[in-house]
Each structure stands twice: as C-alpha cells, then as structure tokens.
Design a protein around this nucleic acid. Sequence first.
DNA 1: CTCGACCGGTCGAG
DNA 2: CTCGACCGGTCGAG
Lengths: 272, 272
Amino acid sequence: MNFFDYCIQTYAQLFLEATKVGHDERFSQKQAIRDTMISAMRNYPTVEVADIWKAVYSAHMDRKSGIANPDIIKKVVSAENSWKKSSGHAFEEMIKVLGNISLEPHGIRILLQKDLKILIEKQTIANEVRDISWLKEQIGASVFDLYITVLQEGKEYVYGCIQSKTSIRDRVTRDREPSMQAMQAFFWSVAICLDGDFLKLPKFISMVNGNTTGHKLNGWHGMYVFSDRYTVGRIYPIDIDLDLFVAHAKEAAEEWLQRRQWFNHEWKADQK
Amino acid sequence: MNFFDYCIQTYAQLFLEATKVGHDERFSQKQAIRDTMISAMRNYPTVEVADIWKAVYSAHMDRKSGIANPDIIKKVVSAENSWKKSSGHAFEEMIKVLGNISLEPHGIRILLQKDLKILIEKQTIANEVRDISWLKEQIGASVFDLYITVLQEGKEYVYGCIQSKTSIRDRVTRDREPSMQAMQAFFWSVAICLDGDFLKLPKFISMVNGNTTGHKLNGWHGMYVFSDRYTVGRIYPIDIDLDLFVAHAKEAAEEWLQRRQWFNHEWKADQK
DNA sequence: CTCGACCGGTCGAG
DNA sequence: CTCGACCGGTCGAG
C-alpha cells in the first residue's frame, strides 16, 4: 500500500477506535492525527514527513467534510482566502459608490482609507496640523475603513471616520475603542454593518447605545445596519439608498463646521 | 428568477465583461462583487441584504473553485478551521510522546505549555523565583509550544523552551525574537519544524545560524527539521527517533545544571 | 519578487 | 454558555 492510502486508512481506524472506547470527537481526532503520524513515519521511513502530514490532513478533511479529493479541498481553501481578502474591499467600495451618489451634490464625499492617504500626502486636506497628525496615526494602524469629508470655501475637511463591516461578530468589541477615540477627537464616528445578527444579544446593543453599567457611553454616533430588524436608539436601518446615513452625514457635516468644540460622543442626529 | 440565481448570473456576467475590456482578475472580481450587490439590492429590495451577500459569496466561490454547492463549501471551510486549530496541538503532542520515550530514562521530559502551567501553579517546579516569573510571562503570552525539564536530586527544573511548528513560513521572523530572549535568559532554546521548505531561502538560514549582516547572531541553539535536505550549521535533521534532538537535549541539560552562567546563544551541541 | 494584513469555524478552557 | 487564539492563500502595494 502506498503511504497516502495508509494514512487515510490508519486515521479512519484510529479515530473510530478512540470514539468506540468513549473519547469525544476532539480528543479522538487529535489522537488520530498524532498516532497516524507516528505509525506512518515508522512504516514509511523514506517518505518526507511533510508529505505524510499532508496525507493526514487529507484524512482529517475527508472525515470532517466528506470530500476526499485534495484538489477540490485546495481550490475551495484558495477561493475562501480570496474572498476573505477581497470582499471587504468590495463592500467598502460599494458604500463609497452608493453614498457618494447622494452626498457629492452637497459637497460631501466618502473616501477609502487609501484615497485619504494619497490626499494627505499631496497635502490637499485642509484640516489643522493636529487633525492631520491624528489621521495619519489612524491610517498607519488601519483603524477605519472609510473617511468622510466636507467642502467649505473650496477646501476639503475630513470630519468623520467610518467602519464598514460585512460581519463584525465579536470584533465589535475591538472596533468600539477606536470609535470612541474618534469621538473624543471631535470627529463623527459611525459604523456601517451588512449583517446585524450580533445585535440579537443585548450586550452588543449596549455597546452601541451605552446606558448600561458595562458600557456607560455610546460607542458610536450611529450604527447603520442593512436590515430593519435591529432598530433601537443609535442603531439605524438603511437600504441601498443609505437614506438615514446620508441624512445624518449632512447634519454631522453642518455641526462639525459650525460647532466642532461641542461635537462629542453625545451628539445625536435629529432625523430618524 | 429568484435572487440567488440572479446573483450567480450577474456576478458571472459582470466579471466576464470586466475582463473582456482588459481589467485584471483582481480588479474584475472586486467590481463584480460590488456591482452585483448593488444590482441585486435594487432588484430584490425585500430580500435581506445579508442573504444577497451570501449569494455573491457563492458566486465568487463557484468561479474560483469550480464548486457551486454551498453545502460542500461550508463543510470544507469548517473542516479546514478544525484542522487549523487542532493539528498544531496534535503535532506538539507527537513531539512530546516521541521525545519522552528516549528522554525520560535520563530524567528529562518535554511538557506541553499547559502541563507546565499546571505544574507551576502546583509549585512543583524547582527553578528560582526569577525563572518562574519569566516562565509565567512566556506562558501568558503563549510564546513557546513546549518546555523541557530535567531532574536533579528529585527536583524538576525547566531548562529549555521549544517552538514546535508544522509550518512556519515567514512566521520564523516572529518566532526568532522570543527564542533569542530565551537564550538571553540562559535557557536552551530550539525549534522543531515539520517542513523545512522555507529554508530554501538563504535569508531564513541566516536567521537560524547568524553570521550575516542582517542577522549577526544565531536565532536558536538548534533547529530540528524532519528532513535531511536542509542540514547546515545549527539546522539539524531528525526523523521519528528525534536522535539529534534527544542527544542535544541531554548535552544541554548537563550544561544548564553545571555551567548555566555561560549557557548563552553561543552554546552549541557537540554531537552532529 | 517581498511582505503585512485579511478572516471565521473550531478548539479548549473556563 | 463565553471568549481568545488558531492559520495561510490571497490581495495589494511596493
């Protein structure tokens, strides 16, 4: 028998034996991986150990997924990684395109982080030095996905930071802190979420709206969700027109230009 | 047509059109994701946007992998994540089992990080306070995968730190720094690698052996690879018996017990 | 070519 | 139940 088939068979057998004597799946699979390796290394001393490892991987993937063909596995994993890396960018671009349709007539526009990076390098952003230096820090740490600017007397000012997320699951926890810092730096800070499923848990609602012992303050000026199932407080529904987001962006731009010193976390848009 | 099929078809069509006018694959796929979303949201305003997103995901996965069945995709991704999380643990256990067969008769044994954590909590590790506190820090940050101890007069001392990796790719870069700190703290510090493919690049060889301008010092006392293709300097071949690793572990234990003050990065095992 | 960053179901230990 | 950590081909910008 070749080493590959040996690994497939041995893994299956060892896993079965382990479960039969009462071990749970996690224990059994770990033991099957470990002992198939040992056994195969003994029986095929001339085969590269890395190749035996790949065979054990195939055995594990087969048992868990029902797919025995390594080519299919490889292609799915590759495609999945492509989606992970690129789909978020596509979503950001979508928000930029959809938002700017309504915003640009008002002298407001959404920028990708990389757009803003270029504009700051070209020194065409009119914010004060202190803002510019704060923005550079945020860009360096890739904190926000999008930024929003407003024109006044022909000059372009960044007045807001946007987190755009297709799925934030429990990463909301990590995104909240930078958002609060943006509000403390007198910027409009909002999140746009494709999927609001996580808002089914009260914990996350209070991370947005505050007013609980665990989360005293609101984490964002607004969170815009592509669904009307989760609307409460600063959690707003949007659809393809981004209506409430656009309305709030206009209100926020006006506020930022006229009364920035009072533009802290308490600010709330009028329109609902 | 239902929204799902609409997304599949639209994505395929938009991607094809983009490539036909000369865009590369990455640009075309990002545009296809973005514009299929916009188009589907317009045509199916009552469908949850998160569900449209899932359909676009399926379209992307289908084009990249050739697999159109979402159930298969889901199972492969799930299995892959299981492997990612569990296989490293199985490998660590394997090293522990294989190593301890030869080591335990000499009063030496390999511990998983979690084993050491428990022993330290039970206060059965005999190292000085300063060592214990250093070890606790390493455990807290999950720096090393395995530790190695030696018995002297019935007391058990941790004398080495082991990184066990199935694939370190360019993560070697990140693993080097903590290894050098372990050597500075007068511990034996080694890595055990399943796959030495990365050692085809001279850069990585010099990260192990030092003696270049970029990497003046050696990064480990030894790196043990399950292959004899990469042997040079402190890069040693091992097979299932872990011969050289075991021989060096014995030498290092002796050195640590007798002459610890001189056990710095320069120490090198005699046996080859 | 290089090289940092991306994600999300699972694991494992509460 | 919760919740932090895991990985690795791809993306994107040098």
